[in-house]
């Protein structure tokens, strides 16, 4: 409980090693950090460290997938999705292969390593690829369940996990369903749609707003693609106001996806909270989240303003 989503990913991958002989894992010299080493230590014959060569890692994963393997290819999010973008596009998505790309250390919560290592664009670029599923789990419970679910789902997928530990928002009995949003709190005045560790902060914000008499819904949109537009529309129809929160750029990510769906189905005022089209910087993870406005207090401010 309350551990980083990357820890839960590693644990789930190791569990998959026990239950599914087709699951294999690859890493690009970051296995200890992405936690794919948890699998690698238990199943060394099914684990391939490809060295610092992300393009080759994704291509090798694609080749394994043509033979029925279920490869999980992990690295830091920036490198997994950015360095190997065109390999993911052509060798995985265009070839329709069952490769799971896992990007760890995503967003400013990555911390002191600074802007070079903090992916802000990964959700946007992965979401732009046809056939791609994009999942950003809210906590360790959901990260574990999502990893298991992605192994059972046939097709390319991107799983985004974080370096920083964050509060667990789901209880152990939570049943994750790919492509389904999860309404964690109900309210009448505003809908807060969040993914990743922003879900915990959205719940904190909703609690604070309730004390002021503002009823905020919190919709956990862990599957950013395909977006659960039905759930989003239902919420928007009820509250008439939407705030989106993500630990990534406001350009092309969860907020954009929600705007796309709402503009066609149920146009309501929307405010997007995320990295405001900028790169991160060095600092402590939680400190950086606050610095960039990815805090409960900033969510409250935006929601309050929208409800005026």
């Amino acid at each position: 409980m309350n551990s980083a989503t990357r820890e839960a990913y590693g644990a789930a991958l190791a569990e998959l090693g026990r239950t599914n002989p087709d699951v294999v894992a690859l890493d690009a010299d970051l296995a200890g950090s992405t936690k794919s080493a948890t699998f690698g230590n238990a199943f060394p014959e099914r684990f391939f460290d490809m060295g610092i060569a992300e393009a080759d890692m994704i291509g090798t994963a694609a080749g394994l997938a043509t033979c029925g393997k279920v490869p999980f290819a992990s690295s830091f999010s920036v490198f997994a999705t950015g360095r190997a973008f065109e390999q993911i596009r052509n060798s995985v998505c265009n070839a329709d292969l069952n490769v799971k790309v896992v990007g760890s250390h995503a967003g400013p919560s990555c911390g002191a390593d600074g802007s070079s290592h903090q992916a802000v664009e990964d959700i946007a670029i992965m979401r732009s690829l046809p056939r791609m599923t994009v999942v950003v789990p809210a906590d360790d419970v959901e990260a574990y369940a999502a990893t298991i679910a992605l192994a059972e789902h046939e097709g390319p997928a991107y799983l985004r996990v974080a370096r920083l530990a964050s509060p667990t928002v789901h209880d152990e009995g939570y049943r994750f369903e790919l492509g389904k949003a999860d309404l964690l709190r109900d309210g009448d005045d505003v809908t807060i749609v969040a993914c990743g560790m922003m879900v915990g902060r959205a719940l904190e914000a909703a609690e604070a707003l309730a004390a002021e008499g503002i009823g905020a819904q919190v919709l956990n949109m862990a599957t950013v693609k395909p977006l659960d537009a039905d759930a989003l529309e239902a919420c928007a129809r009820k509250t008439g106001r939407v705030v989106t929160v993500e630990e990534g750029s406001v350009v092309g990510g969860l907020g954009t996806a929600c705007c796309e769906a709402l503009s066609e189905r149920c146009p309501v005022p929307v405010r997007r909270i995320g990295m405001p089209d900028c790169f991160g910087t060095s600092g402590e993870g939680n400190e950086l989240l606050d610095y960039f406005g990815l805090s409960a207090s900033h969510i409250c401010e935006v929601a309050r303003e929208l409800c005026k």
Partner: peptide, 25 residues
Amino acid sequence: VDMSTGSLGQGLSVANGMALAGRLD
């Protein structure tokens, strides 16, 4: 057609993955 290609430079990695799978199996 065993693999979609056309973007140059990606084929050998894929061939390696196929060979690793053959070894595992």
